[in-house]
Design a protein around this nucleic acid. Structure first.
Lengths: 102, 102
DNA sequence: CATAGTACTTTACTGTTTGTAAAGTGTCAA
DNA sequence: TTGACACTTTACAAACAGTAAAGTACTATG
């Protein structure tokens, strides 16, 4: 209706990154490999997207070990959670209220 | 959760084009110039996006006149309406069922 | 000790998309 | 004849997306 589409966070308006955020919004912490398998993305892309989301301070990256092997866990920051809900809210403004036929 | 993000229609997953579709979903027919002002986009981009949506048979373009001046009206096709709701449905699956509820 | 594997990260590169600006088309009014 | 209107098309630079391959650091195995 208005020009709210211009307020869509472009970092989040990307299918894979949005999926990452949504997965993290649903859980408290998710392993790199689990995320990778869940959303079906290559290591390299996931790694890069995580870097982008981390740079924006949308997610927190925790590195640790399971046994002796390295492992990475991801979680949303408060900023990320806020950005995610604002993104969803903006989407609703654009798209919502006219989803009559399913 | 799954890899449904890969099913997001890339033609619709673009802020301005999504806004066009949403505007058309809300009305039966919209004038080119009205759409242009409503979503705040340049003529050239709007024209191109309309072309893309028309090629996909998502919208119907009707050309006529008001007085002696040319005018263009846009409307959703059944295909377009379906694509739009499927897009919204897919988004819902990704973000967790929080979009589009009135 | 050497080699292979795990768990990512980085680099390189190609193809696509985005937005803007400028020029073009056809009709109409002054 | 010149300018305006309502778009359309072309040209182009910048940004993005995805893939593949190589790199890093550590561990496990023969």
């Amino acid at each position: 209706m208005d020009r709210s589409y211009q307020q869509l966070d472009t970092l989040l308006h990307q299918p894979a990154r949005l999926s990452i955020m949504a997965a993290l919004a649903a859980a408290q912490e998710v392993e790199f490999a689990v995320l990778k398998d869940t959303i079906n993305i290559s290591d390299s892309l996931l790694s890069r997207y995580i870097g982008m989301l981390e740079d924006a301070k949308y997610i927190h990256v925790r590195k640790g070990h399971v046994g002796k092997r390295p492992r990475t866990w991801l979680s949303l920051t408060a900023t990320g959670r806020k950005a995610f809900s604002e993104y969803v809210e903006t989407l609703r403004k654009i798209v919502g209220h006219n989803i009559g036929s399913a």
